[in-house]
């Protein structure tokens, strides 16, 4: 069990800043996540999910990972795709009573059939990320926070060979660039299905936007 985040951050504020970071960037970022510091019952520092913004790959991305998944993508067979859909349907059932479902309500006939759409690798990686946390400097986000130095990993080979399960997992799901930028309150992680070179001004912007007093 986690204690309250330190300090408690407004999720609307996080969402606005994540969205601004992704939508305002010249590069095509697939998602942004803010990993927020907290401490567990034993006093260990934990980076846990603060909030995230999912944009998805570029619309003109021709790679299979952009398209709805088929058997050639990530060796995903039909059963695995059905499992992803089932998990999303179950999660939808879990959260919709509490948070409503305005998208379905506004569009007649939309219903829950839209939950049956193919779940792409990038979408799945983002959803799985919500269940993750990093204790005492583990993982790429934890390393960035503990060293207070941004980590910018470009290319499938570097992600695959990076000594971190999250980087390897990202690569397996089609991420080509993973960036973790530390702030005093946590870590901003950006991921893209493109190879994006290091960008000093983006790192500064992320650090500034996610430094809370």
């Amino acid at each position: 069990p986690l204690t309250a985040p330190l300090p408690s951050l407004n999720q609307d504020t996080l969402q606005q800043r994540l969205q601004a970071l992704v939508e305002g960037a010249a590069e095509s970022w697939t998602y942004a996540i803010f990993w927020q510091t907290s401490s567990d019952a034993e006093g260990s520092m934990v980076l846990g999910w603060g909030d995230g913004y999912y944009k998805g790959p570029r619309d003109d991305d021709p790679r299979p990972s952009k398209r709805p998944l088929d058997a050639n993508s990530h060796n995903l067979d039909g059963a695995d795709q059905e499992l992803r859909k089932k998990v999303l349907r179950d999660l939808h059932a879990l959260v919709s009573p509490e948070f409503g479902d305005s998208a379905a309500a506004e569009i007649p006939g939309a219903g829950d059939a839209t939950m049956d759409g193919e779940v792409t690798d990038a979408e799945w990686f983002y959803v799985v990320s919500m269940m993750q946390s990093f204790v005492n400097g583990s993982g790429v986000p934890g390393q960035a926070f503990f060293t207070a130095v941004p980590i910018w990993i470009i290319g499938a080979e570097r992600l695959q060979s990076y000594n971190c399960d999250r980087a390897r997992q990202a690569q397996q799901f089609g991420i080509q660039t993973m960036v973790c930028i530390p702030s005093p309150n946590g870590v901003v992680e950006l991921g893209s299905m493109d190879q994006i070179p290091q960008n000093w001004s983006l790192m500064q912007q992320a650090k500034t936007s996610f430094t809370f007093t």
Binding site: Q15, G52, V95, F99, A103
Partner: peptide, 26 residues
């Protein structure tokens, strides 16, 4: 179904709603 901490439910709801919009508008 994985356990979803309360703080993450809002993120999940937002993601699922936007995903539904993307599918509908395709």
């Amino acid at each position: 179904v994985p356990r979803v901490p309360q703080a993450r439910k809002a993120s999940l709801a937002r993601f699922l709603e936007k995903r539904k919009e993307r599918i509908i508008t395709k």
